[in-house]
Amino acid sequence: MKKIKRILIPLLVLALSGCLAGCKNTKDNYRTLEEIKKAGTINIGVFSDKNPFGYVDENGNYRGYDVYFADRLAKDLGVKINYVSTEAANRTEYLQTGKVDVILANFTVTKERKEEVDFALPYMNVSLGVVSKNDRVVKSLEDLGADDAVIVISGTTAETYLIKNYPDIPLQKFDSYATAKEAFENGTAVAWANDNTEVIAFAMQNKGYTVGIPKLGSSDTIAPAVARGNTSLLEWMNQEIEKLGEEQFFHKNYDETLADTYGEEYKETLVVEGKKTD
């Protein structure tokens, strides 16, 4: 997906720029809160293949942490919900063209994205994490010896972070998750750095591994996004998320959707309620 994106975006910009310069963007493409209520249906973009955040079960129903939240939003808004299956590369585009009202597809808040869409309050934390074997748990990257290698997947934030902050650690880079996993299981390196959700899930599924560092570097947040300028919907969402925070909704959501994958242990690491970040 990353590769497609890398080729696609420049081409797309190239293709669209001809039009954007020439043709007018007549009106705002988003629907206000009132318009959504009147229509009786809200369009929400979610992943359909990112278990356990957004996926489709064997009966064709959407499930997961993002979806659990989306269901609640629609219920409190008093409207029906129409799920749209989105991909990582087209989430922004879906919002900007008004084809969905809200994106709840595990959307990480970044500076670049903030210029394109408006983010509501966060509902999840993500950061990097490091997993290592039980017989030598790496609790801090400072503990590593000079020859101790760390595995990363090329092109991930983990790679960038380690090169920048720990230039002395020898890295073993792999192109795919599968090859990195195989190398790690064969013991070619003492630790594996990746998104913390990934390393936690890995340690849960594979016996003999521990996440020594569940949080490395600065953490990012995951938040719902609406079209830029759609204040009525944004404000309602923020109030709603604060209200849900009071009833510890996202803790309950975690229990229902994420606990099977990540276990009880990481609930406080991953969940954000209301305004609380960190």
Partner: peptide, 22 residues
Amino acid sequence: IMPQLVLLFLVFFGSTRSLGWN
């Protein structure tokens, strides 16, 4: 020359952006 994927994006999203078609 255009990859089909770009054409799909152009027609699906581009038509909404510039012409307002959904």
